[in-house]
Every structure is written in structure tokens, then in C-alpha cells.
Simulated assay, not measured.
Amino acid sequence: MDYKTWRHAFKIDPAKNISDKQVEAIAESGTDGVIIGGSDGVTLENVLDLLARFRRFSVPLALEVSTVESVTPGFDYYFIPTVLNTTDSKWLNGLHHEALREYGHMMNFDELVTEGYCILNLDCTAAKVTGVDRVPDEEDVQAYARMAEHLFTLPIFYLEYSGQYGDPQIVRSAKELLTNTRLFYGGGIRSTEQAKEMAAIADTVVVGNVVYDDLQVALKTVDAVKSVPLPM
């Protein structure tokens, strides 16, 4: 399934433990895709482990690349984050330049999908790692949305609250400015009600931490998201 049609996705962290039974439940839940990715502790070994375990099923797989060393063939997509509100150019284009200089000649660019990240939770690991030192307000988020859509023509604009449930008004204000760029929302979804609320605004809802805290609730978010019409 093309990522452009995903309504629901699970994000699985290579640095966290997950059983084969949980992998099977996630893969066969009806989710549109599984994203393998995390902010720290990501190694080639734990990425390969998850790849092998999920590849037994037909669910589409994307590797969200946070370290060049963890990249391996076998995924349907390679999501490449560029953090639009970072204070460290390494996370805007530095790692990307390093990867393209080393591996550009052997990359299949049809598999690469750039995500314009906007991180809105200063307490999360992603913010600390990438040098995000201020919470963007609504006008900031709107500017980043315009940057993703019009300046960089990115396929994805990703609002990342990472463990914290986001402000629906801020998410909506970004969505209203996007036509060609797809809006991904991730962060703090811990109930079907929250899943439905964000599904009514964002194109794609990404569910992560609750997988480890309450798998049954996580699985219920699939039908919850898909029961909501695609936002216009």
C-alpha cells in the first residue's frame, strides 16, 4: 500500500523489547503501515531483528532513518526526517549530506520519502538529540507547514509530540495550509477517542508508545482511525 494512502501507522522502536506475539498482532491488525524508528539506541542489529520478524507478514514497512549505520535493504520505504525547527544543521541537512556522499550512488530514490519534522515536546528524546530548544507556537507551526509545502515541496509534514498528546487546534492550523504535502501526526495517543480526534484532522495518525503500555488499546486505534472520514 502506497504511504500516501496510509491513514494509520504503528511506530515501533528498535531499542524497545517486543515479543513475537505482539509483532504478529500489530502486523495483522489492519494498520496501513509499520514504521521502524527511534531517537536513540538504534543499531543495525536491532533494525535487522525487527525487519526479519515483520517481514513474515504482508504489512508495508518503512525505516525511519536516524543513523546512517542502521540502514539496510529490505524495507518498502525509507523515511528521511529533516527537522525544520532544529538549532543544529546536522539534523536539517548534515546527516543527509553525509549519507548521500557515501551511499548516493547506490540509493534507489524511488524508495526515499523526506519528512519535514516539527518537534513540539521539549521533554522528548527527539528534541534533546536534535537540538530543539523552544516549543513552536501556532504561527511557528503554520510557517513550518508552508515551508514544507511551498519552499521544500516535501511529501510529508510530521507534527511530532512524542509521548505528549498534541493541541488539535495547532494540528488543524497546519492541515489547513497543506494541499500536496501529507500531514502525519504522532504523539500521546492513548485512547480510541484521541485517535479519532486526530484522524479527523491529520491525513495519517502514527501510534507508538501505547503499543508497549497497553497493546489492546493500541490495536483498537486502527479501527478508530479508519472509522473517521479522510479530512479535506
Rank of each mutant, 00 (worst) to 15 (best):
R146M: 09
G188V: 00
S58W: 10
A143L: 03
A200V: 11
G208C: 00
F184T: 04
P73I: 14
I201P: 09
A15F: 08
V34N: 07
E64A: 09
E160G: 09
S39F: 10
F10D: 11
L230R: 14
A143V: 01
H8C: 02
Y185H: 13
V205Q: 04
T67E: 12
L63E: 08
D20H: 11
V211G: 00
I80N: 03
E64H: 13
S173V: 03
N46L: 10
Q142L: 00
L230A: 12
I26V: 11
R172Y: 02
D133F: 12
L178K: 07
D20R: 10
N180V: 02
R182V: 05
R53N: 09
T204Y: 04
P81Y: 04
E115N: 06
R172A: 02
G116Q: 11
R55T: 11
R134D: 03
V206Q: 03
A99D: 02
T67K: 11
A62L: 01
Y117F: 12
F79K: 14
P231G: 09
G37K: 05
F75R: 06
F75L: 06
L44K: 15
K196M: 14
E69K: 06
N180E: 13
V141T: 07
N93K: 15
E28S: 11
F152M: 14
Y165A: 13
S70E: 14
D140P: 09
E138I: 12
D223I: 01
V207I: 15
N209V: 10
E45P: 14
P136T: 02
V207H: 12
Y78P: 07
E139D: 10
P81A: 05
V205N: 00
G30F: 08
V65Y: 04
N180S: 13
Q142F: 02
V83D: 00
L44M: 15
Y103M: 10
I36Y: 06
N85T: 06
Y103W: 12
N180H: 12
T87S: 15
L92S: 11
V83R: 01
V132L: 05
S227G: 15
A148T: 01
F79H: 13
E160C: 10
G208D: 08
A143H: 03
I35K: 05
V42M: 07
L92I: 09
R172L: 00
R172G: 00
N93A: 15
D88W: 10
V129D: 07
R134V: 10
T153C: 07
K220C: 12
K90Q: 13
K226T: 08
M147C: 11
V211H: 09
H96K: 14
A62C: 02
V23W: 06
I170P: 01
I35M: 03
K226L: 04
G116P: 01
D2I: 02
Y144W: 12
V217M: 14
R182E: 03
G188Y: 00
L178H: 03
I189Q: 13
M107S: 04
